[in-house]
C-alpha cells in the first residue's frame, strides 16, 4: 500500500532514490487506475511543496529543474497503470517563448509546475511570432496565455503579441501573464499584460487565482 504522505514528502525533499523506490514498489502491486491517479496527485502535491520552498528562498532554479525531471520520471513509472484515469483539469494555458528569443529553461520550469498544478499546457516552443499565439488561442480557447523571454528584446515581442491578440478580438477573453528575467511592473503595463513574474512558482499561483 502506498503511503501518499511519504511520497509527497520525498518529492518535496527532492529525494529521487526514495521517490523511485516507493513508486517501483507501488507499481509491483499492479495498482488500479484510481490508485495510480492518487500516486500522481501525491507527486503533484510534492511539487507544490517544492514551489513553496522556492518562494521561501530555500530552493533555487536548479532545484525546480530537478523537481521537473523527478516528476516526469515518476509519471513515466505510473503511466502504464493510469488507464483512462485523468486528473481534473483546472484550466488551459497557451505558453511560448516570444519572437526573437531562443531561451526556454524558464518556460519549461513554469510548464512542468503548471501541469503539476492541474493545468493543460499547450507549449508553442521558442521564438514564436505573434501569429502563432493567435492561432493557438483560437484553436484551444485557453483561459490564460503565458509569454516567456530572457533577453530584454523579448519585451517588445511580448507587446506585439498582446497587440495581435487584441487585433484578433481575443484579448478580452483571456488573461495574459509574462515571465522571465527582463519583466518589470512598468514593462507589464506597457505590454498590456495582466500580470508579470520572475518566479515560476508565483506565476503558477497567479494562474490558479484566475481560474478559481
Amino acid at each position: 500500500m502506498l503511503d501518499t504522505d511519504l511520497l509527497t514528502k520525498a518529492v518535496g525533499d527532492l529525494d529521487e532514490d526514495s521517490v523511485i523506490k516507493q513508486l517501483q514498489e507501488f507499481a509491483a502491486t499492479n495498482p488500479s487506475p484510481e490508485e495510480a491517479q492518487k500516486a500522481v496527485a501525491a507527486c503533484q502535491s510534492g511539487m507544490g511543496i517544492v514551489g513553496e520552498l522556492f518562494e521561501q528562498g530555500e530552493y533555487f532554479v536548479g532545484d525546480l529543474i530537478f523537481a521537473g525531471e523527478l516528476l516526469t520520471n515518476a509519471v513515466e513509472i505510473l503511466k502504464p497503470y493510469l488507464g483512462g484515469a485523468t486528473s481534473e483539469k483546472i484550466g488551459t494555458i497557451v505558453l511560448g517563448t516570444v519572437a526573437g528569443d531562443l531561451h526556454d529553461i524558464g518556460k519549461n520550469i513554469f510548464k512542468s509546475m503548471a501541469e503539476a498544478a492541474g493545468f493543460e499546457v499547450h507549449d508553442l516552443g521558442i521564438d514564436q511570432p505573434p501569429g502563432n499565439f493567435v492561432e493557438k488561442v483560437k484553436e484551444v480557447k485557453p483561459e490564460i496565455v503565458g509569454m516567456s523571454g530572457v533577453l530584454t528584446l523579448a519585451l517588445e515581442s511580448m507587446k506585439l503579441t498582446v497587440d495581435a491578440l487584441r487585433d484578433a478580438g481575443l484579448r478580452d477573453s483571456i488573461k495574459v501573464i509574462i515571465g522571465g528575467n527582463p519583466v518589470t511592473k512598468e514593462a507589464c503595463e506597457q505590454i498590456g499584460a495582466d500580470a508579470f513574474t520572475t518566479n515560476a512558482a508565483e506565476g503558477v499561483k497567479i494562474c490558479q487565482g484566475w481560474v478559481k
Binding site: A99, G100, D101, H103, I105, D127, P129, L151, L153
Partner: peptide, 13 residues
C-alpha cells in the same frame, strides 16, 4: 550560437 528570427545571435541550450 544561433540567430533568432530577428537576427539576434544567442546561445540556446
Amino acid at each position: 550560437w544561433m540567430q533568432g528570427s530577428n537576427g539576434f545571435m544567442q546561445h540556446p541550450e
